[in-house]
């Protein structure tokens, strides 16, 4: 269990709509600021949560479970949904060197997560997609 003093440095919630995802992001920002996380890292965590959760809300099984905790300078983000088996780590990343005429927007989300996360592990357990993302701070 992650504690700093008496404070539990853990957050969990669940969302079913993009409105709830938006609200959850604001809540995560507020809670994790209290954990002493820098604005830059907060932004990156928020981005990771959004990129995976928005996909799950659109295509996966709702509600989407979101858990975030900070322990030993590692932020662990767990995202789970009951949708069809889907491993986002296998999504093709875009060629970011293409010129404007040839650029398409798809795949940027996973590209951001790959950039900002240290590890991303996908598993399928009990009919749920489980993503465990770790980020050292």
């Amino acid at each position: 269990m992650a504690r700093r003093g008496d404070e539990l440095m853990e957050f969990s919630g669940s969302i079913s709509t993009l409105e709830e995802l938006h609200a959850l992001s604001l809540m995560v920002h507020e809670v994790a600021s209290d954990w002493g996380i820098s604005e830059k890292v907060l932004f990156e965590v928020s981005l990771i949560v959004e990129e995976f959760c928005s996909n799950s809300v659109k295509y996966g099984g709702i509600p989407v479970g979101v858990g975030i905790k900070l322990a030993d300078s590692v932020i662990t983000i767990m995202i789970t949904d009951s949708g069809k088996p889907f491993d986002p780590t296998e999504v093709a990343v875009p060629d970011v060197t293409l010129p404007l005429e040839e650029r398409k927007a798809g795949g940027l989300g996973i590209h951001f997560v790959n950039h900002f996360a240290d590890t991303i592990v996908y598993s399928r357990e009990n009919g749920r997609n489980i993503l465990k993302i770790e980020k050292k701070i």
């Binding site: 992001s25 932004f43 990129e51 404007l100 005429e101 650029r103 927007a105 940027l108 989300g109 590209h111």
Partner: peptide, 16 residues
């Protein structure tokens, strides 16, 4: 304060 790939997509379309 914040932009995600959804926002970048809008920027790409506007750019085009």
């Amino acid at each position: 304060d914040y932009i995600s790939s959804a926002g970048l997509r809008v920027m790409l379309n506007l750019s085009k």
